[in-house]
């Protein structure tokens, strides 16, 4: 039995190949691929914010959360690192390999100073969510205007 096949024309092929090619052109296939092209290694991050905190979301499917390494330095320097194992199946041959594997780390400057002691991290459904309470100095403050004479 010949088990080496052309992944694009063999038993398993992409039905919407044209769509896929277009998606690749506009970087919609793989956030990692887009990031690599931009010189970034590791997961891409989305950040939301309100008055009290920053909320960071990183797509990290298939990771052992115990092996994630998250640090906040200097109040606004966030680093997320970890490792994803290559799937190992006894006696299997690869038909297609697109999912990134191995070690990664990503460092970013956050848009506000945060309180590093109160950062909460949660890993759910392959997404890492961080809640980073803003440092008192970074919170908005209402300034009372004193009336003159």
């Amino acid at each position: 039995m010949n088990r080496v096949r052309n992944p694009f024309g063999g038993l398993f092929h992409e039905v919407n190949a044209v769509q896929e090619q277009f998606a690749r052109l506009v970087n919609r296939v793989a956030p990692y691929a887009a990031a690599t092209a931009a010189g970034v290694s590791g997961p891409l991050l989305n950040v939301w914010e309100d008055e009290n905190a920053l909320y960071v979301e990183a797509d990290l499917p298939g990771i052992d959360p115990a092996k994630l390494d998250i640090t906040v330095a200097e109040g606004n320097h966030l680093t997320v690192g970890g490792e994803r194992a290559v799937p190992e199946v006894a006696g299997a041959v690869w038909v297609r390999q697109e999912r990134p594997a191995g070690k990664f780390a990503r460092s970013v400057g956050l848009p506000a100073l945060v309180d590093a002691d109160k950062v909460e991290a949660k890993y759910e459904n392959g997404v890492l969510r961080l809640t980073l309470p803003k440092h008192e100095a970074a919170k908005p403050r209402k300034i009372q205007v004193k009336a003159g004479e």
Binding site: E20, V29, V93, Q97
Partner: peptide, 13 residues
């Protein structure tokens, strides 16, 4: 938007 998820495909006997 809808994106194409990345996949690995392996074949065993």
């Amino acid at each position: 938007v809808t994106v194409t998820p990345r996949v690995d495909i392996l074949e065993t006997e």
